[in-house]
Amino acid sequence: MLVVEDLQVGYGAIIALRGISFKVESGQVVTLIGANGAGKSTTLNTLSGLLKPRAGRILFENVDITGKRADVISQKGLVQVPEGRLIIAPMTVQENLEMGAYKRTDSEINSDIQQVFERFPRLGERRKQKAGSLSGGEQQMLAVGRALMMRPKLIMLDEPSMGLAPMLVNEVFSIIRTIKAQGTTILLVEQNARKALQVADYAYVLERGSIVKEGSAAALQADEEVIQAYLG
């Protein structure tokens, strides 16, 4: 579904990605794990079109989307839930979800909003509240709900558990399982490698801008080096 070939990205003199290649198959949960600064968020932002690559190719559903604008890419169904739960604070919960459906013209927008509220009842209770007044966990729910309103084919989650209390972290991962169960493909970027590998089918390990290891989630969970570096 998503094929990345030899992707290189840099900011000025700094090289953030040194030519990485990976794949996400339809229906899979793929995770990119790695330390802070390894290039995980850079990868997602480049896939989203927020950053322009220096070299390499990105194919989404066999279409070359390299260097396309972010709004064009997200419209194709490659949707990012950005790091830090970037919800639109001054708008209500309801409006945030409506903005997820900004480019949609179909008649199912309202029923999709209802679905989000069914999945996250806490959002339904606060639909008229300003998004900025929600708790951290609720904001993460809203960010995911808003992404779901875009009817994504592949949803990219950037550090969804960052800054959340341990109980909420579990909640976030259960949300990921639910999305997966509904057949949405997921690319998950996480620092919490243990949790990520538990939900993922396949994983890549990113170190200083290069992929140093890959394999099925089960295999990496058993890998000595991975256990040493990320799970220990």
Partner: peptide, 11 residues
């Protein structure tokens, strides 16, 4: 509010 969010929302 935030141009990044706007882009990611296909705006």
């Amino acid at each position: 509010f935030n141009q990044r969010i706007a882009r990611l929302l296909s705006i």
